[in-house]
Design a binder for these strands. Structure first.
Lengths: 260, 260
DNA sequence: CTTTGTGAAAGACTTCACAGCC
DNA sequence: GGCTGTGAAGTCTTTCACAAAG
């Protein structure tokens, strides 16, 4: 989905399905909670419930990692935590840079879950000279001019983009040129990257629209109305269609959360 | 994925695949940009490129909505904007409440894309009495005690949870009890909701872990090493495993962005 | 008797490739 | 000639259901 292409032609087997990879962090979180409560083992049924998936799926997922369970008993919590952590690459340190320290960037910098699990905020970068030097979450913000230098001297391979949409592609290009190969994009834009670079996006607006779709569907079902061709409300649509234009300032973008 | 269940047993046809629904907002964004530039028509090829998908997929997606294109020509931009907006339910106003006005909640409240496209921030809610009355993004924060009242009097059906993980389920329960049927969850927890309620989650930590997985894989490939059973670094893992425990304060949760 | 691990079946999504219409 | 719309093929994902292991 967000993964440009997994890798070259065909790597030797051991291919864990993308859908499974996306669930491993979920299992890991549930397992960590169990570990804290010193629970020694879990059944696929219990763990699945804690992670919000069904047990067959969980067992199939784990089968791609190997046979780490014991029939009739379940899985050893500590051991599974270890195996999943290793599989996800969390046994090493990942220095991360956050570019765009607006409301959202600051929120991300303060995010506790960031620091845990091997992710370390190596630097905060912003284009606003007024921000430079000011500490956010205890880390001094650095100017965009330093970007390449920071990436290279810290060996950063993961970058988080929290800039306005208008600046995202440009920032992305610089990150990639400097050596970043994985990007988490919060700006509402499609980023173009060369092969070999992974991009994942988080887009509030898209999530809300998906919810609205289902919400509308529920409402229609309730009153028994088929959402066929009822003519709609053109006026309302016209408003929606021009909404984007409205928030666009003279030079293309108005800051805000992701924006700004 | 995040959708508990789409609906009852089987609604009368017209079922747009979930994967397609998830891409409609993407197309809509690209189309809106074209509309602003007064581009009258687009081919599936051009629009697909702008949305970052391939053209066959886009055509198939549009085919679920109906036949809105013209062979040999392409799609009428304005008309498509209208049709997609209507399909997504963006022709009506969706009052939204944001619960948990920490760093992240404030960032969301300030998000411009929120206000556009029919979403309107009806209220900001926080459990901290000190926050009450203070305006964020021009909207005064209200205390959690008001939650039910706010939901009911504003007819809110979409709620955004940006509280610490520890408070999320409780807030969720109250939102649902008060009538909310769609939830966007930023807290790193699995929410349990009754049938008929949709939950979508946005989880920074999970996205980073997925990136780390691919990043690790790239590194291994590069040096030609098979990531088989190299023993790993148990020490590092032990650290990662207990990370969650470390950030947990005396009373269960420390504020920050999502966590807090 | 319990619970895993997994072939096989079912289902969802994507891509191909081309007939059909402009 | 150009481009959409779509069956059919291909791929990925989930679910079933049960043999095998403890």
């Amino acid at each position: 989905m967000a993964t440009g292409r997994t890798h070259r032609p065909a790597t030797r087997s051991r291919g864990i399905p993308e859908a499974t990879v996306a669930r491993l962090p979920l299992y890991l979180r549930a397992l960590t909670a169990l570990s804290e409560r010193s629970v020694p083992t879990v059944s696929s049924e219990e763990l699945a419930a804690a992670a919000g998936v069904n047990s067959a799926k969980l067992r199939k997922d784990f089968s791609y990692l190997g046979s780490y369970g014991t029939r009739g008993v379940g899985y050893d919590v500590e051991y599974l935590v270890y195996q999943i952590s290793r599989e996800l690459g969390l046994t090493q340190d990942w220095p991360v840079v956050i570019v765009g320290i607006g409301n959202l960037g600051a929120a991300l910098a303060n995010y506790g879950g960031f620091a845990s699990r091997g992710f370390r905020v190596a630097a905060l970068i912003d284009a606003d000279p007024a921000m430079a030097g000011r500490p956010v979450a205890g880390i001094p913000v650095q100017h965009t001019d330093e970007l390449e230098h920071i990436i290279e001297s810290n060996g950063v391979s993961i970058g988080v983009i929290a800039t306005p949409a208008g600046a995202a592609q440009q920032v992305c290009d610089r990150l990639v040129a400097a050596g970043v190969t994985s990007i988490l994009n919060f700006a509402p834009t499609v980023l173009t990257v060369p092969d070999g670079v992974d991009v994942r996006k988080v887009d509030l607006s898209i999530e809300l629209q998906i919810l609205a779709f289902h919400e509308q569907r529920k409402a229609g079902e309730e009153t028994g109305q088929e959402s066929g061709q009822e003519g709609g409300t053109p006026t309302a649509v016209a408003r929606a269609a021009s909404a984007e234009a409205d928030r666009k300032g003279p030079d293309g973008d108005v800051p805000a959360v992701m924006p700004a």
